[in-house]
Design a protein around this nucleic acid. Structure first.
Length: 99
DNA sequence: GCCATGGCTAGTA
DNA sequence: GCCATGGCTAGTA
């Protein structure tokens, strides 16, 4: 299994209504400091592998994408799943983080 | 705001 | 070199 495959599996394992950080996914995939690999996979493989890309946010809970770039859509998708927000672009990790 | 981090890939030799 | 990061620090209010 390649690291990319491991990352894909880790992303798919995040349940609806929850979010995970890039670092968390990287750790799950066995790449302790591989947050940027997760970013790369999301960028290039989301469509092909039907990844729940909207469930991945920054370690702070903040949505990484700009509103114009998809951040607005991400917020909508998360709200539909019942994810709690602390502010417009920041997920409440106490309630909706980890799993 | 800076910069270390790590695997992939386009593009050169 | 790229990438949808992360953690720490300086420096402002």
């Amino acid at each position: 299994m390649t690291t990319t495959e491991a990352i894909i599996r880790a992303i798919k394992a995040v349940p609806a209504g929850k979010v995970a950080s890039y670092a968390r996914i990287a750790t799950e995939a066995g790449i302790p400091n591989g947050a940027r690999q997760v970013a790369r996979v999301l960028h290039s493989c989301s469509e092909k592998y039907a990844l729940p890309w909207w469930r991945i946010v920054r370690a702070s809970g903040e949505i990484a994408l700009t509103d114009a770039d998809g951040g607005l859509l991400q917020r909508e998708l998360l709200l539909e799943e019942g994810v709690f927000f602390k502010s417009a672009r920041v997920v409440d990790l106490e309630q909706s983080g980890d799993y």
